[in-house]
Nucleic acid binder design. Structure first.
Lengths: 223, 223
DNA sequence: TGTACATCAGTGAACGCGCGTTCACTGATGTAC
DNA sequence: TGTACATCAGTGAACGCGCGTTCACTGATGTAC
């Protein structure tokens, strides 16, 4: 009964940077799922985006993947562990989005703008995941989660340090970081909460950052 | 059994601007609670802050107030209605915090700074309520909620318009509003998520806005 | 290449829980006369 | 001031639900010889 549906195994999706194990080809229609861990993460993220944080349940996940309620516990100690893995993966992808295309930039100002755009792009593409990453507090500390979060912030800091080295900052790195991060972070939340109506009713990441970058840069930089 | 505890009726707390009905004095130890509606809102907010959004339940609320599980339904159609009332009240108080002390300000720039400080003060004092206000989407539109939210934003807009009238803005009101609101909103979230470590590990609203205001104002204003 | 065996990743049934909500009811309150 | 009555705001029991988690089990897989 449960073994009939394993189509999800063939999914194209691969959350984050975790490599899929390669025993997938032989796993279809098997008693063993093949890669239930990845499938759970994938389905969990979809469920989260679809139904919000309240709608995410391990049982539902199992049902969706054609697997018994107990099965997820072979891969995650409990629900919190799954959420933490989801959030950590989110931070890694957020960071990727921020540093993407950085080589194309000619100077610090451009790098900052690209990173901000990436930040907004991530938040608007995965609003509930973004909310989970920043709003949810695990019942006990998860080192993987802290590291991934710090790494994302470190990417911003590195950019600002290069700006400073180029002599393009009118403030300290930490004050510049406070404004830049706050502004982009705030805009991200306002966007996903549907509270920003600039030009269009649901403006794009590029549009919003286009409207904000000049203000940010006059606030913290010089040309 | 349920009538033994009505001490909450005497609470000093009065959420938002709603006036308490004044039959409280006669209500103690009564079969009728006296002002269950207000008591529910008050207890709900405390419960929200104490245990997070997942820990808020109507049944628990009833238990806490010494009242039957059915009782809350005399005052709120369902759980969503209570949440909406909570959020709407939050917006009203947020607005109050923003416009507080405005008369003390000498010019637009100072007004903006005071409003920002009030915003952060509210968010850090009521973090879970703040998250509810901005993160939660009611299953059906609640006009009261929209109005209260719009009114809070309108307070910011009014300040920026006065800045413009004084000739102190270097950008359009809407671009200035985008930066100012995003920056303060983002800082609010970063603060309540414990991600801001400037000077102290948990800096105050005044401290954070002190560090941000110069950057914001060089971004959007002139002196 | 074939077999024995340890390990892994599932099954399926069950546990206890707390929740939102409904409903027929009743005690308290306030009002009209 | 006293009484009849409508309305209000509770009671208490019940409904059905889905959830997280556990556990003894078993089929599938991979490895050592």
């Amino acid at each position: 009964m449960y073994t009939a549906f394993t189509s999800n195994v063939n999914s194209v999706y691969s959350p984050g940077m975790i490599k899929l194990q390669s025993n997938m080809a032989t796993a279809r229609k098997a008693y063993h799922h093949g890669d239930l861990r990845e499938a759970l993460l994938e389905a969990a993220e979809a469920q989260l985006e679809r139904e919000g944080p309240g709608g995410l349940s391990l049982r539902k996940l199992g049902r969706e993947l054609g697997v018994t309620p107990g099965a997820p516990y072979r891969h995650f100690e409990d629900k919190d562990a799954l959420l933490a893995a989801l959030a950590a993966d989110g931070y890694r992808r957020l960071r990727n989005e921020m540093v993407r295309d950085q080589e194309a930039a000619e100077n610090g100002e451009e790098r900052l703008k690209l990173a901000g755009t990436g930040y907004l792009r991530f938040a608007t593409a995965h609003p509930e995941l973004f909310r989970l990453m920043f709003g949810w507090i695990p019942s006990q500390e998860v080192p993987e989660l802290c590291e991934a979060g710090d790494a994302a912030f470190a990417a911003l800091e590195a950019i600002l340090e290069r700006c400073e080295a180029e002599g393009r900052l009118s403030r300290s790195v930490s004050e510049a970081g406070l404004l830049a991060w706050s502004a982009v972070h705030g805009a991200a939340f306002l966007m996903i909460d549907g509270r920003l109506k600039v030009d269009e009713p649901t403006p794009s990441a590029e549009c919003i950052l286009g409207h904000m970058h000049e203000s940010i840069w006059s606030g913290i930089g010089r040309r």
